[in-house]
Simulated assay, not measured.
Amino acid sequence: MHRRYVTLDLLRGIAAIGVMLFHNCVDVVPSGYLAVDLFFVLSGFVIALSYEDKLRGGLAQSAFFLARFIRLWPMIVVGSVLGLLAGLAHYTAHPGDLWTLGAQFSGSLILLPKLAIAEGDELFPLNTVFWSLFFEVVVNVIYAAWLYSRRAQGLLIAVVIVSAICILLQPEIRMLMLFARALLGFFLGVLVYRMSKKLQWTAVRFGWLFCAAGVVLILAMPTSIRPPGILFLLTDAVFCAIILVAAASDEKMPSKSVGWSQWLGDISYPLYAIHRPLFYFCSLLIVRATHDLAAYNLAAFVASIAIVAASGVVLRSFDQPVRRYLTGLTRPYLKTKGRPEAAFWEA
């Protein structure tokens, strides 16, 4: 079993909370959307940590895809159902086409985006954050089909090419820009993992704290760099440095901080997957009960705390039990050179 980096759990939890506050509280976390880019860099690092040696050692690609399905799908179901309930609640106040709602729910369940999108449209209208899960699956396929076996030089060339594409793309070409962001972050994460294996990085005292503060600072700062591709490239570069320091300094984290850091990492995915539809219901009450921005943000912050608590309940009562069940059910099919291989459902 691969090592679990508790500091990376902490960063992932902070990123999930940052995205939630960006969506829930007006102008409180102006750059919270950049947390998604941190997710992609972390994903590249953790996927390479969990699977690179296994894939090179003979783990079947089908086993990799099955393990990733087990990791992602349970919360996709929960997020889709909650999105459907929010869509039905919206339908009662603003009647529309139920067939469209049904098609959006079906697309959400199987991560099939709305490809023909106009200005302001979402790839997944019932749960808008699912766009990143869609591209997470895409980059996972690219990783298992090609990237894991590439040497460092090939990976570096891929990073340079994607960086150039990201910088040159116009933000109006939205689908390609989102894809470029996912590729750039994920490729850099894999590169950081390989660097961390080959180079001896010195642990930094309180490195975990500096890394956490760095992520908070990035998400809280107003950003106006244009074109946006340069912003994503610079931010990803900083995130890479933060992850290197975090991984090297992981064992320096005080033992009393380990438990809640792991908990934040555990709830990060459920929180990310359910916060949008849950806050829709909260907002119905908040908008009626508040009369100014300060009161709205205070109420939204309280609702956000409740959503974090709800994410913990969903994690323990549904996400983890379902993943464990599916892992046990499919274990005979996860093989490396003829031997059973456990699915890394925590990756």
Rank of each mutant, 00 (worst) to 15 (best):
M1H: 10
L8C: 05
L8W: 06
L8D: 04
L10D: 02
G18Q: 01
M20H: 00
H23W: 08
P30F: 08
S31W: 01
Y33F: 15
A35S: 10
D37A: 05
D37G: 04
L38N: 00
F39Y: 05
F45A: 05
V46S: 03
A48Q: 06
L49S: 08
L49V: 04
S50F: 00
E52L: 07
F69L: 11
I70G: 00
I70D: 01
W73K: 09
M75V: 03
S80G: 14
A86Q: 02
G87M: 02
H90E: 14
Y91I: 07
A93I: 10
T100W: 13
A103G: 08
A103D: 10
I110D: 07
P113A: 06
P113Q: 07
G120H: 07
E122W: 12
L123N: 02
L123K: 00
F130I: 06
V137N: 04
N140T: 05
I142G: 15
S149I: 13
A152I: 13
I157K: 14
V160W: 13
V160E: 12
S163K: 03
A164L: 15
L169E: 04
L176G: 04
L176R: 03
L178I: 13
V190Y: 05
R194A: 00
Q200P: 10
A203W: 09
R205E: 14
G207W: 04
C211T: 11
V216H: 03
I218R: 01
L219H: 03
A220L: 13
T223R: 12
I225M: 09
F232H: 09
A237T: 15
A241V: 15
A241G: 14
V245A: 14
A248F: 06
K252F: 12
M253F: 02
P254M: 04
W263L: 10
L264K: 00
P270A: 07
L271R: 02
H275M: 08
R276T: 13
I286S: 08
R288C: 08
L293V: 12
N297D: 10
A300K: 03
A300M: 02
I305G: 12
V308L: 06
S311E: 07
S317T: 13
S317G: 10
F318C: 05
F318D: 03
Y325V: 07
T327H: 11
Y333M: 12
T336C: 11
K337N: 13
E341A: 12
F344H: 13
A347P: 01
